[in-house]
């Protein structure tokens, strides 16, 4: 049995409000797909449509080859972990993990072994006899993951699983999830998050959602280096978005012709140029832009400069400077041709 997930034109509405608009997306077997977007973008709705807690107004949801659109949640065979853990407070850790197995009438003799296996995998074996309230947030999240894995699902749905944890625990759990996925290479994971770091770290591919629609989809590197829309560019990593006019050999920004790849963009059209702040250098060089410093932020290993170039604010992250440049001082910035991406106008968000 194959284990991928397919959204086939899935639309979800609440009254007259469309919260998910015609989503077409395929998660390959064994793939980690992150659904990344701000709140209200429809990403959680998409996950809940797979789980069966929302019913699409139109379209189909497939798990493997099976159309599950009309199936109740308990017949779908999916594992799910949510932000608030949702551990059953009246059951010990062991019983929480065994819950799904008992509910699905797994033979009694098999249950202890599979519970132990799931707890082992998440490093929670020592806590089997505790109640959820006796565990820390991170431990509760591990139990929730163990509980979802115990039923050996083909599909694992993770809904903001780390956002209730503090920053330090989060990076630890992130590594942990990556390891789990290496141990379970056949499980498809749909990972809903608003945090780009989690998506970039964990996902094989990222689906960027905004305003109930899929905006962009690709590998993390692809989306980061070659974003196709302004929304992707600004939501996945930081970006300078500069309005330019496409010319024969490059693009013009504030009267300066820049040597950037223009690909198929027609000459004379307007477009947006995307350059990552950390790829912007200080001092003269190719594609030089001069401006006045309006703000300087010291960030430990880097300095963030805000430079006003002809009414536009350009951000540059440069290695820590010995001397903080004075506000109002004139500086020159530059960037390499291959670090710039031209976003054709009209592909912008919405």
């Amino acid at each position: 049995m194959t284990s991928g997930i397919r959204f086939d034109g899935v639309t979800v509405t609440y009254g007259s409000n469309t919260v998910l608009d015609h989503l077409d997306l395929t998660v390959e077997p064994g793939e980690v797909m992150a659904l990344l977007g701000p709140s209200g973008s429809g990403k959680t709705t998409a996950l809940r449509a797979v789980a069966g807690f929302v019913r699409p107004a139109s379209g189909r949801v497939l798990i493997g080859d099976r159309d599950v659109t009309a199936l109740p949640p308990y017949k779908r065979g999916i594992g799910m972990v949510v932000q608030q853990y949702a551990l059953f407070p009246h059951l010990k850790v062991e019983a929480n993990v065994a819950f799904g197995l008992k509910a699905q009438k797994v033979p009694k003799g098999e249950i202890p072994g599979r519970v132990a296996e799931a707890l082992e995998m998440t490093g929670m074996a020592a806590y089997a006899q505790r109640y959820p309230r006796e565990l820390s947030g991170g431990q509760q999240q591990r139990v929730a993951i163990a509980r979802a894995l115990a039923i050996r699902p083909n599909v694992l749905l993770l809904d903001e699983p780390l956002s209730a944890l503090d920053a330090q625990l989060r990076s630890g759990m992130l590594a942990e999830l990556a390891r789990l996925h290496r141990e379970l290479p056949d499980v498809s994971i749909l990972y809903v998050t608003h945090d780009q770091v989690e998506a970039l770290t964990l996902a094989d591919r990222i689906a960027v959602m905004d305003k109930a629609r899929l905006q962009d989809c690709g590998t993390p590197q692809d989306l980061y280096r070659r974003p196709r829309t302004e929304f992707t560019a600004s939501f996945v990593g930081n970006a300078n978005l500069l309005p330019v006019t496409v010319g024969e050999k490059g693009a013009t920004f504030e009267g300066v012709t820049l040597d950037v790849p223009i690909a198929e963009a027609a000459s004379g059209t307007t477009a947006t140029l995307c350059v990552r702040p950390h790829l912007v250098g200080l001092g003269p060089g190719p594609n030089a832009l001069s401006g006045r410093i309006t703000e300087v932020q010291w960030r430990g290993s880097t300095h963030r400069l805000y430079v006003e170039v002809g009414g536009h604010r350009v951000k540059a992250d440069v290695r820590e400077l010995r001397e903080t440049p004075p506000l109002g001082g004139e500086v020159t910035l530059h960037f390499a041709r291959e670090d710039a991406v031209l976003l054709a106008a009209g592909v912008t968000d919405g």
């Binding site: 949640p73 059953f88 819950f99 039923i151």
Partner: peptide, 9 residues
């Protein structure tokens, strides 16, 4: 919902 996702009727 957690219970339902674990396969409980």
């Amino acid at each position: 919902q957690a219970a339902a996702s674990l396969g409980a009727r």
